[in-house]
Each structure stands twice: as C-alpha cells, then as structure tokens.
Design a protein around this nucleic acid. Structure first.
Lengths: 117, 117
DNA sequence: CGGCATCCTTTCGGATACTG
DNA sequence: CAGTATCCGAAAGGATGCCG
C-alpha cells in the first residue's frame, strides 16, 4: 500500500505518475470521468480485474484525494465511486496522455507494417 | 525488453504511459528536453541509476522512436543522446504532468501537516 | 567511455476461496 | 453486493564485475 507518510517525490512528473500510473488506474479514472459508478459496474467495465486489485486501486485513489467513496447502509450494500473536485482536475492531463497515445499508436502501426516487408 | 511486435495497447493512455512510464524515463526525458547529452552526463544527472538501467531505458526510448542515439567512432568512444522530432512532441505532455504534480504535491504537504496535529 | 552479462531483491499484479 | 485473505508467478529494478 502506498503510504502518504513515507512516499516522497522529488520530481513533479513522478508524483503525477505515482497517482495515475499502473495497469488499472488510468482505466478506472477514464470510466469515472463523467459517471458515478458502483463497485460491480466498474468491475464489469474492467475485464479481467480481480476484486483484490479493484479494491486496492480504488483505496489508493481515495487516499490520494482523487476518488470519493460513498457507502449506503442498505442490504444488499451499495457503494458508489466518483471523482472528487480535485480528482476532476486531472481529466485534462488524462486527455493529453490519450491524445498523444493515439498518434503514437498510429506511428507504431506503420512501423510494424514496414517490418513485414 | 519491450517488444514492438508483441506489445499491444488497447487504451491510448496506457500506450503513452508505456512509453514515458517507469522510474527513470520521465527524468531522462526531462533532462533531454532541451539538451543533447552524453551517456556519462546523463548518468551523473540521475543519482543512483545503474549503467544497466540507464542503457535499458535509453534503448526502449530509442525503439519507441523518442530518442536518438548518435555514436562517434572515436577513442575513447562518445555517444550522444537527444530527442527525435517525434520525441519532442511529448514535451507538452510532460509539462502537463509536471504542472498537475506540483499542485498535487502542495495539497499532499498540507495533508501531512494536518496529520501531525 | 559506454556499455553488457549475471545474479539478486523488491514490487506489482493474478488466481482463488471465503464473508458480513 | 462489495469486498478480505492468502498464496503465487511475473516483472521491474538494483548491485556488481567485466570488456572493447
């Protein structure tokens, strides 16, 4: 678990990557970008994620102040996840990453075609 | 080693993080942002990096078309690394990451102070 | 000087079973 | 439904020694 007391960042880029990096966080944030989602819904949107991982990633995002966890004391239980106001400030960053990724994927595709010849 | 033949990305954000992510790549790119640097110079700018790691990261960036490696056939050998034209397109993305990281580090610092009380 | 080869430790993530 | 707990393998990263 990432610990706010001990985790130190010297470079601001690393700090950001520490928050949104990893295999699942970008996808989780992407799905929460404009929706409030339940645990199970998220799990269905992330094919292959184990409950352990989903919980872990959500907890870390929560600790970092990015995601809000709202629990309803019902039976069966219902828990909804959403972006905090601060969490929403990261959306433009994600979109910048996505846009560059698209052009990169194009170029990579071209290179792979060339290698076949 | 990352292999262009086998590595697949479904999400453009992941694709970008695959290129600039990891412990050292952001720092390497940050230093190459506006300078052409030799292997040894880079190593000195990255305290604690092992030669193995530095080489590995540089090769991957080279394979991804981000970094240019220019070798001079001299003795002693000299190798200079720089951003390719395509590599330079990622600078604004890095700066977006850095800027968000700064505000995040501020907020985190405040939270740590509160926890002390 | 600019690496590569080898070995080792640490971290990340996956699989599965179980529970309030 | 929304998680925990436990165990395991894969991958990232570190330390060190050697070489053209």
């Amino acid at each position: 678990m990432k610990n706010i007391e001990t985790t130190e960042y010297s470079c601001p880029v690393e700090a950001t990557l520490g928050v949104i990096g990893g295999k699942w966080k970008p996808l989780i944030l992407w799905h929460l970008k404009e929706d409030v989602l339940r645990y199970n819904t998220l799990q269905q949107m992330l094919p292959g994620i184990s409950p352990r991982m989903l919980t872990k990633q959500l907890r870390e995002l929560e600790d970092d102040g990015i995601v809000n966890r709202k629990m309803y004391p019902e039976i069966p239980p219902r828990v909804e996840y959403s972006l905090t106001d601060f969490g929403k400030t990261i959306i433009p960053v994600l979109e910048a990453l996505a846009q560059w990724g698209l052009t990169y994927m194009d170029i990579r595709q071209d290179r792979k075609c060339e290698m076949k010849r």
